[in-house]
C-alpha cells in the first residue's frame, strides 16, 4: 500500500535539497545534531504533513477533540478534506435554521456514524424535513442522540427509522414525538442495542397511551434506560418482549411499576442489572 496522493500539498511530496529555505526560528522542535545519515526532513522548509499519508493524518485527528479538529480544518484544504472525511462523531446545534446547512455539512462530513442533534429550550428546533434529509445522507448512522428537538414528530422519526435501519443506539431527551415514532424505530432498526428515553412528551398526551411494543429490535436490545417519564408503563410490552435485555434502568418514572417488575422477575432471562431510582 502506498501513500495516498495529497491534493493541495502534493506538489511538495518530493523533497529536493535545492529547495532549501531558511528555517523559521519559531519552530518548536529543536534542531538536532547532524549525523551521517542525510535527514531530508531537516533540510528544507516544507509541509511536513504532506509526507505522511491521508490515513495517518486521519489517525492523528481521531485523537483530537472536536474543538481541535475544527481548528485543524482551518489549517489548509488538505486537512479540511481529511478531517471531514474522517469525522465519525458529529454534534450539531439543531435549531431550525440548520436545515439549510445540512447539504454542505454532510458533504463535508460524509462518514458520520454517530450524530447528536441538540437544541436549546428557547429555540425552535429542526423538524421532520431536516431529520429526513439527514437520514438520507447518513444511512450508516449507528448512534443518534436527540435533545430538545421538539418539532420532530412521529412522522419524522418513522422516516428516519426506515432510512437508518443500522441504528444501534438511540437516545432522546425532551422530545415531543410519541409511541408511534418509537414503535417505528423498534420495527425498523433490527440491530438496536440501546435505548435511552428521557422526558418524552408524546407518550403523555391523550388518555389511553399507545403501548410501545418490542418490534424486531426485541432480539437485539440489551439496554433500556427510562428517565422522568410520566407514562413510562407504555414501554412495558417492549421491556417484557426484549428477551436479551441485560440492563434495565428506571429513574424517576411515575406510576405503578410493580406488576411489570413482577413479570420481569418471573421471566428471569438475560437481565443482569436492574437499576431503580426514585420511582413514585
Amino acid at each position: 500500500m502506498g501513500q495516498s496522493a495529497s491534493t493541495a500539498a502534493g506538489a511538495q511530496n518530493h523533497i529536493h535539497l535545492s529547495k532549501t529555505e531558511p528555517r523559521s526560528t519559531s519552530v518548536t522542535s529543536p534542531m538536532k545534531e547532524s549525523d551521517d545519515v542525510i535527514d531530508m526532513f531537516e533540510v528544507g522548509q516544507f509541509d511536513y504533513s504532506s509526507t505522511i499519508p491521508d490515513e495517518c493524518l486521519a489517525c492523528i485527528f481521531q485523537s483530537l477533540s472536536s474543538g481541535d479538529r475544527k481548528r485543524c480544518s482551518l489549517v489548509c484544504r488538505r486537512w479540511f478534506r481529511i478531517e471531514g472525511q474522517s469525522r465519525h462523531r458529529l454534534s450539531l446545534n439543531a435549531q431550525s435554521d440548520l436545515v439549510s446547512l445540512i447539504p454542505s455539512i454532510f458533504s463535508r462530513f460524509d462518514s458520520v456514524t454517530k450524530l447528536a442533534l441538540k437544541c436549546d429550550r428557547r429555540s425552535t428546533s429542526i423538524g421532520d424535513d431536516a431529520l429526513l434529509i439527514i437520514s438520507l445522507r447518513c444511512r450508516n448512522l449507528t448512534r443518534l442522540k436527540l435533545r430538545t428537538c421538539r418539532e420532530i414528530t412521529d412522522a419524522g422519526i418513522e422516516a428516519f427509522a426506515k432510512n437508518c435501519k443500522g441504528l444501534k443506539k438511540l437516545s432522546c431527551g425532551s422530545c415531543s414525538f410519541g409511541a408511534k415514532g418509537m414503535n417505528a424505530v423498534l420495527d425498523n432498526c433490527l440491530f438496536l442495542e440501546e435505548l435511552s428515553v428521557k422526558r418524552l412528551r408524546g407518550i403523555t398526551d391523550g388518555a389511553a397511551a399507545e403501548p410501545i411494543g418490542s418490534g424486531i429490535a426485541a432480539a437485539s436490545l440489551r439496554v433500556i434506560c427510562l428517565k422522568e417519564l410520566y407514562n413510562g408503563q407504555c414501554f412495558g410490552p417492549l421491556i417484557i418482549g426484549s428477551k436479551n435485555l441485560r440492563t434495565l434502568k428506571l429513574f424517576r418514572c411515575s406510576g405503578d411499576w410493580d406488576r411489570l417488575l413482577e413479570v420481569i422477575a418471573d421471566q428471569a432471562g438475560e437481565l443482569i442489572e436492574v437499576h431503580l431510582e426514585r420511582l413514585q
Binding site: A9, S26, V27, S50, L64, D68, R71, V75, R77
Partner: peptide
C-alpha cells in the same frame, strides 16, 4: 498539536495556507 491555533499548527508543520 491540541489547543493550538490553526496559525500555530501551520507554523509547526510549515504548511502554507492555501485558503
Amino acid at each position: 498539536i491540541k489547543d493550538k491555533s490553526p496559525e500555530a499548527v501551520r507554523k509547526i508543520f510549515h504548511i502554507n495556507c492555501d485558503y
